[in-house]
Design a protein around this nucleic acid. Structure first.
Lengths: 352, 352
DNA sequence: ACGAAGCAATGAATCGTTTCATGGAACTGG
DNA sequence: CCAGTTCCATGAAACGATTCATTGCTTCGT
C-alpha cells in the first residue's frame, strides 16, 4: 500500500537493454539517439512509469528549473493577476514558480529569500517590502552575487544594473484627473495615503500635473484627504469626511489612489444617500475585477497586470539564458483609463 | 560580476578544520556536536555565507521539503485565503509550497501534477478539476502509489482511504434560508448554477431543508433561477429577470449561491433603482472580502477558508511524518452566517 | 582489403548532501 | 593500570541524474 520504490533511470536502462547514458540522452537530446533505440527506451519509460527526479538533475546541472515570485499579498487581486502573467511566461518555458507571500513583513520576506536560495532558483521576481532607495537592499544584493537573477516587480529600479518592470503612476493620476476636469469638475478630492508611499505620491503628482495643463490652480480646485492606509475602511471614513463638509464647498468628484479606497468611498456615500455619479463622481485606481462589479460600476485606471508579470518573467528568462549578452532594462508600462458609470456624467447635472 | 562559485559544505569543513560529516551534523542534529566545534563551524558558515543546496539534500534524503497546492483559480479570493492557511501551516514546519493554478483545465492540472511529481513533493493539496466520483481519478491514484500524499481540498472524499477537507454546503444553504424566513420573507429566489455543480446543489438542498423545517412548501415559496455560471455577469442577468416579473409575484429576497452572483444581482438591482434591502433582501455565499465592501454590505455565509487550508496542510504533514499510524480523515467544517445590511430588515417594511 | 570517418552507445566521474560504520580520545570504576 | 563506556569526529558510500571521453560498428573511398 505504501509507495512503490521509485523507478530510476537505471531501471529504465535495464528494461530497455541500454546504458543509463542513453536513457538520459533520450530525455535530453533525443536526436542523437538512433530511432529504434529511442522507441525502445520510450516504451520502457512508459511501462515503468518513470518520472525523472528533478533534484538529481538539478544537482548535476547546477541550476534549477524554478523561479521565485515574492509578492506583498497573495490575497490582493493585483498580485494574483501579475502571478497569472508570470505563470503564463514560465509555463511556456517549462519552468515552475514558487509563489511566496511576504505579507509586507521583512522577516517573512527574508525567510522566503533564504528558502529560494536553498532551492537554487534561477531568479527571483520581487516586490520588495522596503523600497530600495539607493540600489538594492543588501539582501537582494547578496542574492545577485550568488548568481540568482533579480527582477523588481511594480517597482522602478533607479539603477541600470537591474531589470525592473513597473507602471507609470504619474501618468495614471494625470489621466484620471484630466478625465474629471473634462467632465467639468472643478472641486476634486484626492483620497489616498499614507503619502510617503511612492505610488500614492506619484499618482498625486499626476493629478497636479493635469491641473497645471488646464491652467487650474492646485489650491483652489484640489483637496487632499490623506488616509492611513489603502483600504476599504479608510475609504469609508474618507467618505464621511467628504459628506461632512457643507454642500457648497463639497467636492463634486473624488479620485482615489486605489480601488479599495474607492469601494469604501462608494459604500460610505451610499450609506449617506449621496448618489454616484449624480451627486459625486468617483474614480478609482487599479481596475480590479470588483471595480466593474461594484453596485455602480467604477471608473478606474487599469494597469496591465498580466503583462507586468509576463514581462518580468520574460526578462528573467532572457537573462538566465544568455547572461553574457543581457542588458538590464527598466520597462515602464502605460496605464489606461477605463471609464464606467461612476464618473460618466457631466458635473453639476444632478438629476434631482 | 557574475555569480561567485557556490560555497559547498566541503568549503565550510575546510575552513572550520573539520570533516564534512561534522558540518552536516551541525546543520541537522547540532546536539551531537561538541559545543566548541559547533561554534567554529557556525562561524565558518556565516563567514563564507554558506547556504545548503536543497537539491543535494533532497536527493540524498529521498524526499523533498516542499508540497504542492493545486487550485482552480489563483485570482479567486476563496483560494488565496485557503492558500494563506496552507502557507501558515507549512511555514511553521519549514516547508515550501509550490502554488499551482489549474484554471479549471484538466490539461494544466495534469501538467502541474507531472511537475510536482518530478519535484518529488511530499504531498499534494488539490481541488481537482473533475470531481472524483468513485474514489480517485487515475492520475491522483498513480500519484498516491508513488508515495505522494494527496489531500482533497474543498471536496469531500467519499472513500475513507483519503484525507479531505470541506465545508458543509447544505448547512450553509440552510442557515441562509432560515435567516430569510425568520426575517419574514415568503417569496425567495435562489440564484445559482449550473445545477450540476455539487456545491450549488448542496446549497439548494439546504434551502429546501430550511423551508421544510418551517413547514413551508417549496413550490409556493421558492423560485429557482438557474445561472450559466457563478459570475458577476450572470448575477446581473438574474437581477434583470427578477425585476422583470410583476411586483406582486416578485421575490422579496434573493439568495445567491456565491458572492460574485450576489454582487452582480446588487449591481443589476441598483441599476433598476430597486433598493437593497428595502425592496429586496440579498444574501450571498462565501463571504469574500468584497462582500463587506459592497455599496450595501452583503449578508453572506462564511466558510472558514484559512482553516480549510491550514487543516489540509496539517493533515498532510501528519501523514508525512508518521505514515504508519496515520488514519485518513474527512474533515467537514461548519459555515457561519454573517448578517449585514443587505438582509437586515424585516420583510415588507420598504421605507417608501 | 585497409584505413579513415562517422555514428551510436557505453560507463565512469561528478554534483552536494546525508548517513553510518569505524576509530580514537577521554573518562570511569575496580 | 586496565577494561569498559561515553563522547566526538571521521570519511567513504550512496542518492539519481548528466556529461563526456572512449569504444565498437558500419560505411566509404581508394
Amino acid at each position: 500500500m505504501r509507495g512503490t520504490p521509485a523507478v530510476s533511470i537505471r531501471d529504465v536502462a535495464v528494461r530497455a537493454g541500454v546504458s543509463v547514458g542513453t536513457v538520459s540522452n533520450v530525455l535530453n537530446q533525443p536526436e542523437v539517439v538512433a530511432a529504434a533505440t529511442r522507441v525502445r527506451v520510450l516504451a520502457a519509460i512508459s511501462e515503468l512509469g518513470f518520472v525523472p527526479n528533478d533534484a538529481a538533475r538539478q544537482l548535476r546541472r547546477g541550476r534549477s528549473r524554478t523561479l521565485g515570485l515574492v509578492v506583498l499579498d497573495v490575497a490582493n487581486p493585483f498580485f494574483t493577476d501579475v502571478a497569472k502573467g508570470v505563470e503564463y511566461a514560465t509555463g511556456q518555458a517549462g519552468m515552475a514558480v514558487i509563489f511566496c507571500n511576504s505579507d509586507g513583513d521583512p522577516a517573512k520576506e527574508n525567510a522566503y529569500l533564504d528558502l529560494l536560495e536553498e532551492q537554487r532558483v534561477q531568479g527571483v521576481l520581487i516586490t520588495p517590502v522596503n523600497t530600495p532607495i539607493n540600489g538594492l537592499d543588501n539582501r537582494l544584493h547578496r542574492l545577485r552575487n550568488r548568481g540568482v537573477r533579480v527582477v523588481l516587480l511594480d517597482r522602478r529600479s533607479t539603477q541600470s544594473d537591474l531589470c525592473s518592470v513597473s507602471v507609470d503612476d504619474r501618468l495614471g493620476g494625470e489621466l484620471a484627473m484630466r478625465h474629471l476636469i473634462e467632465k467639468g469638475h472643478r472641486r476634486v478630492a484626492f483620497v489616498g495615503g499614507p503619502h510617503d508611499l511612492e505610488q500614492v505620491r506619484d499618482r498625486y503628482d499626476g493629478v497636479v500635473q493635469a491641473l497645471a495643463t488646464f491652467g487650474l490652480s492646485e489650491g483652489q480646485h484640489l483637496r487632499r484627504l490623506e488616509t492611513p492606509a489603502l483600504t476599504v475602511a479608510a475609504g469609508r471614513d474618507a467618505a464621511a469626511r467628504i459628506v461632512g463638509t457643507p454642500r457648497e464647498g463639497r467636492a463634486t468628484a473624488v479620485f482615489c489612489a486605489n480601488d479599495l479606497l474607492a469601494l469604501g468611498v462608494l459604500q460610505g456615500l451610499t450609506r449617506q444617500h449621496v448618489r454616484v455619479p449624480d451627486d459625486i463622481a468617483l474614480v478609482g485606481y487599479d481596475d480590479i475585477d470588483f471595480a466593474a462589479a461594484a453596485a455602480v460600476p467604477l471608473t478606474s485606471v487599469r494597469q496591465p497586470r498580466a503583462s507586468l508579470g509576463q514581462t518580468a518573467a520574460t526578462l528573467l528568462l532572457e537573462e538566465a539564458n544568455d547572461p553574457d549578452h543581457h542588458r538590464h532594462r527598466q520597462v515602464v508600462f502605460e496605464p489606461e483609463l477605463i471609464v464606467r458609470e461612476s464618473s460618466d456624467r457631466p458635473a453639476g447635472h444632478a438629476a434631482g
